[in-house]
Amino acid sequence: MVAVDMPPQTRRRAARSPQTMAWLLSAPALALMLLILLVPMLSALVLSFTDYSLGATELNWVGLDNYEKLFTRSSYEKMLWATLTYVLVVVPMSVGLGLGAALLINSLGRGREIYKTIYFLPVMATLLAMAIVWELMLHPTIGMVNRTLEMGCGTWIESLWPWLADGCANGMPIWLGDKDYALWVVCFIGIWQGFGFNMVLYLAGLTGIPRDLYNAAEMDGARSAWERFRLVTWPALGPTTVFVVTITCIRAFQVFDTVEALFPRGGGPSKSAYMMMFAIYEKGIKQNLIGVGAAITMLFLLFVMIITVIQRRLTERKVHYS
Protein backbone atom coordinates (compact mmCIF):
# COMPACT_ATOMS: atom_id res chain seq x y z
CA MET A 1 0.00 0.00 0.00
CA VAL A 2 1.94 2.96 1.26
CA ALA A 3 5.09 0.96 1.74
CA VAL A 4 6.19 1.55 -1.82
CA ASP A 5 6.22 5.29 -1.37
CA MET A 6 7.59 5.36 2.10
CA PRO A 7 10.57 7.62 2.41
CA PRO A 8 13.77 5.77 3.21
CA GLN A 9 13.99 7.25 6.65
CA THR A 10 10.66 5.86 7.84
CA ARG A 11 11.57 2.48 6.41
CA ARG A 12 14.76 2.41 8.34
CA ARG A 13 12.91 3.20 11.53
CA ALA A 14 10.43 0.42 10.77
CA ALA A 15 13.18 -2.18 10.68
CA ARG A 16 13.54 -3.42 14.25
CA SER A 17 16.92 -3.30 15.86
CA PRO A 18 18.79 -6.59 16.01
CA GLN A 19 18.51 -6.46 19.80
CA THR A 20 14.73 -6.41 19.76
CA MET A 21 14.61 -8.98 16.98
CA ALA A 22 16.77 -11.41 18.92
CA TRP A 23 14.58 -11.05 21.98
CA LEU A 24 11.44 -11.48 19.90
CA LEU A 25 12.81 -14.65 18.37
CA SER A 26 13.63 -16.18 21.72
CA ALA A 27 10.54 -14.82 23.49
CA PRO A 28 8.21 -17.80 22.90
CA ALA A 29 10.84 -20.25 24.07
CA LEU A 30 11.67 -18.11 27.10
CA ALA A 31 8.04 -17.68 28.06
CA LEU A 32 7.34 -21.40 27.80
CA MET A 33 10.48 -22.31 29.73
CA LEU A 34 9.35 -20.00 32.46
CA LEU A 35 5.73 -21.17 32.53
CA ILE A 36 6.23 -24.87 32.02
CA LEU A 37 9.51 -25.55 33.77
CA LEU A 38 10.55 -22.86 36.20
CA VAL A 39 7.22 -21.72 37.63
CA PRO A 40 6.01 -25.30 38.29
CA MET A 41 9.31 -26.12 39.92
CA LEU A 42 8.96 -23.19 42.28
CA SER A 43 5.30 -23.89 42.90
CA ALA A 44 6.17 -27.48 43.77
CA LEU A 45 8.54 -26.09 46.36
CA VAL A 46 5.83 -23.82 47.75
CA LEU A 47 3.09 -26.45 47.61
CA SER A 48 5.27 -28.94 49.43
CA PHE A 49 4.92 -26.81 52.55
CA THR A 50 1.13 -26.75 52.36
CA ASP A 51 -1.80 -29.10 52.65
CA TYR A 52 -3.18 -27.95 49.32
CA SER A 53 -5.65 -30.07 47.45
CA LEU A 54 -7.54 -29.32 44.25
CA GLY A 55 -10.95 -27.89 44.85
CA ALA A 56 -10.15 -26.96 48.42
CA THR A 57 -11.14 -23.45 49.33
CA GLU A 58 -8.25 -22.76 51.58
CA LEU A 59 -4.65 -23.62 51.86
CA ASN A 60 -2.73 -24.01 55.09
CA TRP A 61 0.95 -23.82 55.74
CA VAL A 62 2.07 -26.99 57.33
CA GLY A 63 5.77 -26.33 57.40
CA LEU A 64 7.87 -29.42 57.09
CA ASP A 65 5.03 -31.81 57.90
CA ASN A 66 4.94 -33.30 54.43
CA TYR A 67 8.66 -33.94 54.47
CA GLU A 68 8.48 -35.36 57.94
CA LYS A 69 5.88 -37.84 56.71
CA LEU A 70 8.21 -38.87 53.91
CA PHE A 71 10.88 -39.90 56.33
CA THR A 72 8.75 -41.39 59.07
CA ARG A 73 5.85 -43.26 57.54
CA SER A 74 6.56 -46.82 56.57
CA SER A 75 4.89 -46.61 53.15
CA TYR A 76 7.27 -43.82 52.14
CA GLU A 77 10.17 -45.69 53.60
CA LYS A 78 9.14 -48.55 51.36
CA MET A 79 8.91 -46.14 48.45
CA LEU A 80 12.47 -44.87 48.97
CA TRP A 81 13.71 -48.37 49.50
CA ALA A 82 12.02 -49.71 46.36
CA THR A 83 13.15 -46.78 44.21
CA LEU A 84 16.74 -46.94 45.39
CA THR A 85 16.86 -50.71 44.95
CA TYR A 86 15.49 -50.34 41.48
CA VAL A 87 18.05 -47.67 40.55
CA LEU A 88 20.95 -49.52 42.13
CA VAL A 89 20.06 -52.73 40.35
CA VAL A 90 18.97 -51.41 36.97
CA VAL A 91 21.74 -48.87 36.43
CA PRO A 92 24.77 -51.14 36.89
CA MET A 93 23.11 -54.05 35.16
CA SER A 94 21.89 -52.20 32.09
CA VAL A 95 25.12 -50.22 31.77
CA GLY A 96 27.19 -53.38 32.21
CA LEU A 97 25.12 -55.41 29.79
CA GLY A 98 25.12 -52.54 27.32
CA LEU A 99 28.91 -52.32 27.48
CA GLY A 100 29.31 -56.08 27.29
CA ALA A 101 27.01 -56.36 24.31
CA ALA A 102 28.75 -53.46 22.58
CA LEU A 103 32.20 -55.00 23.10
CA LEU A 104 31.06 -58.41 21.90
CA ILE A 105 29.26 -57.01 18.88
CA ASN A 106 32.16 -54.74 18.01
CA SER A 107 34.57 -57.64 18.00
CA LEU A 108 32.41 -59.75 15.69
CA GLY A 109 33.36 -60.36 12.11
CA ARG A 110 29.83 -60.69 10.81
CA GLY A 111 26.32 -60.40 12.16
CA ARG A 112 26.85 -57.08 13.94
CA GLU A 113 23.83 -55.36 12.43
CA ILE A 114 21.35 -58.08 13.27
CA TYR A 115 22.24 -58.14 16.97
CA LYS A 116 22.24 -54.38 17.11
CA THR A 117 18.74 -54.30 15.62
CA ILE A 118 17.36 -56.96 17.94
CA TYR A 119 18.83 -55.44 21.09
CA PHE A 120 17.44 -52.07 20.16
CA LEU A 121 13.87 -53.31 19.64
CA PRO A 122 12.76 -52.93 23.29
CA VAL A 123 13.94 -49.31 23.27
CA MET A 124 11.54 -48.57 20.44
CA ALA A 125 8.58 -50.53 21.76
CA THR A 126 5.88 -48.95 23.91
CA LEU A 127 7.02 -49.89 27.40
CA LEU A 128 3.49 -50.13 28.73
CA ALA A 129 2.54 -52.69 26.09
CA MET A 130 5.65 -54.71 26.72
CA ALA A 131 5.06 -54.63 30.47
CA ILE A 132 1.63 -56.14 29.85
CA VAL A 133 3.19 -58.80 27.66
CA TRP A 134 5.68 -59.61 30.40
CA GLU A 135 2.85 -59.83 32.87
CA LEU A 136 1.19 -62.40 30.65
CA MET A 137 4.42 -64.32 30.25
CA LEU A 138 4.84 -64.38 34.01
CA HIS A 139 1.26 -65.50 34.59
CA PRO A 140 1.54 -68.21 37.24
CA THR A 141 -0.42 -70.84 35.31
CA ILE A 142 -0.67 -69.97 31.65
CA GLY A 143 2.52 -67.89 31.41
CA MET A 144 5.35 -68.99 29.20
CA VAL A 145 7.98 -68.59 31.91
CA ASN A 146 6.51 -71.06 34.31
CA ARG A 147 5.58 -73.43 31.49
CA THR A 148 9.19 -73.42 30.34
CA LEU A 149 10.44 -73.95 33.87
CA GLU A 150 8.03 -76.84 34.37
CA MET A 151 9.54 -78.56 31.37
CA GLY A 152 12.72 -78.85 33.40
CA CYS A 153 10.91 -80.75 36.16
CA GLY A 154 11.84 -84.38 36.39
CA THR A 155 14.97 -83.93 34.27
CA TRP A 156 18.61 -83.80 35.26
CA ILE A 157 18.40 -79.99 35.43
CA GLU A 158 16.38 -80.35 38.60
CA SER A 159 19.25 -82.03 40.42
CA LEU A 160 21.66 -79.25 39.41
CA TRP A 161 19.37 -76.37 40.29
CA PRO A 162 17.82 -76.59 43.75
CA TRP A 163 15.65 -73.57 43.11
CA LEU A 164 13.96 -75.37 40.22
CA ALA A 165 13.57 -78.55 42.26
CA ASP A 166 11.81 -76.53 44.93
CA GLY A 167 9.54 -74.99 42.30
CA CYS A 168 8.69 -78.39 40.90
CA ALA A 169 7.84 -79.77 44.29
CA ASN A 170 5.99 -76.80 45.81
CA GLY A 171 4.71 -74.95 42.76
CA MET A 172 6.42 -72.37 40.62
CA PRO A 173 6.62 -68.78 41.85
CA ILE A 174 3.68 -66.52 41.25
CA TRP A 175 6.18 -63.77 40.35
CA LEU A 176 4.24 -60.52 40.38
CA GLY A 177 2.03 -61.63 43.23
CA ASP A 178 4.95 -62.54 45.44
CA LYS A 179 6.67 -59.79 47.38
CA ASP A 180 9.95 -61.63 47.18
CA TYR A 181 9.91 -61.49 43.40
CA ALA A 182 7.80 -58.51 42.36
CA LEU A 183 10.49 -55.83 42.63
CA TRP A 184 13.05 -58.01 40.88
CA VAL A 185 10.69 -58.62 38.01
CA VAL A 186 10.21 -54.87 37.64
CA CYS A 187 14.00 -54.45 37.69
CA PHE A 188 14.37 -57.15 35.10
CA ILE A 189 11.93 -55.45 32.74
CA GLY A 190 13.78 -52.18 33.25
CA ILE A 191 17.07 -53.80 32.32
CA TRP A 192 15.50 -55.66 29.43
CA GLN A 193 14.11 -52.43 28.07
CA GLY A 194 17.09 -50.16 28.63
CA PHE A 195 20.34 -51.93 27.93
CA GLY A 196 19.99 -51.74 24.13
CA PHE A 197 20.07 -47.96 24.35
CA ASN A 198 23.30 -48.08 26.34
CA MET A 199 24.71 -50.59 23.90
CA VAL A 200 24.16 -48.23 20.99
CA LEU A 201 25.84 -45.36 22.82
CA TYR A 202 28.79 -47.57 23.68
CA LEU A 203 29.04 -48.77 20.09
CA ALA A 204 29.22 -45.16 18.96
CA GLY A 205 31.91 -44.55 21.59
CA LEU A 206 33.88 -47.54 20.40
CA THR A 207 33.98 -46.38 16.80
CA GLY A 208 35.46 -43.12 18.05
CA ILE A 209 38.58 -44.78 19.45
CA PRO A 210 41.52 -44.32 17.06
CA ARG A 211 42.88 -47.63 15.79
CA ASP A 212 46.41 -46.35 16.32
CA LEU A 213 45.88 -46.45 20.08
CA TYR A 214 45.37 -50.21 19.92
CA ASN A 215 48.43 -50.54 17.71
CA ALA A 216 50.44 -48.46 20.15
CA ALA A 217 49.21 -50.60 23.03
CA GLU A 218 50.29 -53.72 21.18
CA MET A 219 53.74 -52.23 20.50
CA ASP A 220 53.98 -51.23 24.15
CA GLY A 221 53.49 -54.83 25.14
CA ALA A 222 49.80 -55.05 26.03
CA ARG A 223 49.27 -58.66 25.09
CA SER A 224 45.87 -59.67 26.42
CA ALA A 225 42.46 -58.34 25.50
CA TRP A 226 42.01 -57.33 29.13
CA GLU A 227 45.20 -55.23 29.07
CA ARG A 228 44.13 -53.48 25.90
CA PHE A 229 40.71 -52.86 27.46
CA ARG A 230 42.29 -51.37 30.60
CA LEU A 231 44.84 -49.28 28.71
CA VAL A 232 42.78 -48.03 25.77
CA THR A 233 39.10 -48.96 25.61
CA TRP A 234 37.87 -48.24 29.12
CA PRO A 235 39.56 -44.83 29.48
CA ALA A 236 38.41 -43.84 26.00
CA LEU A 237 34.85 -44.77 26.91
CA GLY A 238 35.00 -42.64 30.05
CA PRO A 239 32.87 -39.78 28.75
CA THR A 240 30.35 -42.25 27.28
CA THR A 241 30.15 -44.05 30.59
CA VAL A 242 29.54 -40.87 32.55
CA PHE A 243 26.73 -39.96 30.20
CA VAL A 244 25.23 -43.42 30.02
CA VAL A 245 25.20 -43.81 33.80
CA THR A 246 23.60 -40.40 34.27
CA ILE A 247 20.83 -40.88 31.76
CA THR A 248 20.13 -44.42 32.94
CA CYS A 249 19.94 -43.16 36.52
CA ILE A 250 17.50 -40.40 35.66
CA ARG A 251 15.37 -42.80 33.65
CA ALA A 252 15.46 -45.39 36.40
CA PHE A 253 14.22 -42.84 38.94
CA GLN A 254 11.33 -42.10 36.59
CA VAL A 255 10.09 -45.67 36.35
CA PHE A 256 6.31 -45.57 36.21
CA ASP A 257 4.78 -47.44 33.26
CA THR A 258 5.81 -50.89 34.44
CA VAL A 259 4.65 -50.54 38.03
CA GLU A 260 1.40 -48.86 37.09
CA ALA A 261 0.59 -51.54 34.54
CA LEU A 262 1.68 -54.51 36.64
CA PHE A 263 0.26 -53.40 39.99
CA PRO A 264 -2.95 -51.49 39.35
CA ARG A 265 -3.77 -51.49 43.04
CA GLY A 266 -0.56 -49.67 43.67
CA GLY A 267 2.91 -50.61 44.60
CA GLY A 268 2.74 -54.36 44.27
CA PRO A 269 2.56 -56.97 47.01
CA SER A 270 3.18 -55.28 50.39
CA LYS A 271 4.21 -52.16 48.48
CA SER A 272 7.46 -53.87 47.55
CA ALA A 273 7.53 -52.05 44.21
CA TYR A 274 6.16 -48.67 45.29
CA MET A 275 8.18 -46.26 43.11
CA MET A 276 8.47 -42.50 43.53
CA MET A 277 6.77 -41.54 40.28
CA PHE A 278 3.92 -43.83 41.12
CA ALA A 279 3.71 -42.34 44.57
CA ILE A 280 3.48 -38.84 43.11
CA TYR A 281 0.68 -40.00 40.84
CA GLU A 282 -1.14 -41.86 43.56
CA LYS A 283 -0.87 -39.21 46.26
CA GLY A 284 -1.10 -36.13 44.09
CA ILE A 285 -3.70 -37.12 41.57
CA LYS A 286 -5.63 -40.13 42.72
CA GLN A 287 -5.87 -39.05 46.35
CA ASN A 288 -5.61 -35.30 45.71
CA LEU A 289 -2.96 -34.83 48.39
CA ILE A 290 -1.03 -32.26 46.39
CA GLY A 291 1.15 -31.19 49.31
CA VAL A 292 2.59 -34.63 49.89
CA GLY A 293 2.93 -35.20 46.17
CA ALA A 294 4.84 -31.93 45.88
CA ALA A 295 7.18 -32.98 48.67
CA ILE A 296 7.94 -36.23 46.85
CA THR A 297 8.45 -34.16 43.69
CA MET A 298 11.03 -32.02 45.48
CA LEU A 299 12.83 -35.08 46.75
CA PHE A 300 12.79 -36.48 43.27
CA LEU A 301 14.18 -33.26 41.79
CA LEU A 302 16.89 -33.28 44.40
CA PHE A 303 18.02 -36.73 43.33
CA VAL A 304 18.02 -35.77 39.66
CA MET A 305 19.93 -32.57 40.31
CA ILE A 306 22.56 -34.35 42.36
CA ILE A 307 23.12 -36.87 39.61
CA THR A 308 23.38 -34.20 36.94
CA VAL A 309 25.74 -32.06 38.95
CA ILE A 310 28.00 -35.06 39.49
CA GLN A 311 27.85 -35.76 35.77
CA ARG A 312 28.79 -32.20 34.84
CA ARG A 313 31.67 -32.23 37.30
CA LEU A 314 33.01 -35.42 35.83
CA THR A 315 32.57 -34.21 32.28
CA GLU A 316 34.31 -30.92 32.91
CA ARG A 317 37.23 -32.54 34.67
CA LYS A 318 37.79 -34.70 31.64
CA VAL A 319 40.42 -33.16 29.37
CA HIS A 320 39.67 -34.03 25.81
CA TYR A 321 42.26 -35.18 23.39
CA SER A 322 41.97 -33.46 20.07
Binding site: P40, S43, I285, T297, F300
Partner: peptide, 26 residues
Amino acid sequence: REAVFGMVLFCLLIPVHAIALPIYVG
Protein backbone atom coordinates in the same frame (compact mmCIF):
# COMPACT_ATOMS: atom_id res chain seq x y z
CA ARG B 1 22.30 -13.84 25.36
CA GLU B 2 24.53 -15.51 27.90
CA ALA B 3 21.78 -15.32 30.50
CA VAL B 4 19.25 -16.87 28.14
CA PHE B 5 21.63 -19.65 27.26
CA GLY B 6 22.40 -20.20 30.92
CA MET B 7 18.68 -20.61 31.50
CA VAL B 8 18.53 -23.17 28.71
CA LEU B 9 21.36 -25.11 30.31
CA PHE B 10 19.65 -25.00 33.67
CA CYS B 11 16.30 -26.11 32.28
CA LEU B 12 18.06 -29.01 30.60
CA LEU B 13 18.40 -30.39 34.11
CA ILE B 14 14.67 -30.55 34.78
CA PRO B 15 12.87 -33.65 33.57
CA VAL B 16 9.30 -32.68 32.76
CA HIS B 17 8.08 -35.94 34.32
CA ALA B 18 9.50 -34.82 37.62
CA ILE B 19 7.42 -31.65 37.80
CA ALA B 20 4.30 -33.29 36.43
CA LEU B 21 2.32 -32.62 39.58
CA PRO B 22 2.60 -28.81 39.65
CA ILE B 23 1.97 -28.70 35.90
CA TYR B 24 -1.11 -30.81 36.49
CA VAL B 25 -2.28 -28.42 39.17
CA GLY B 26 -1.74 -25.49 36.81
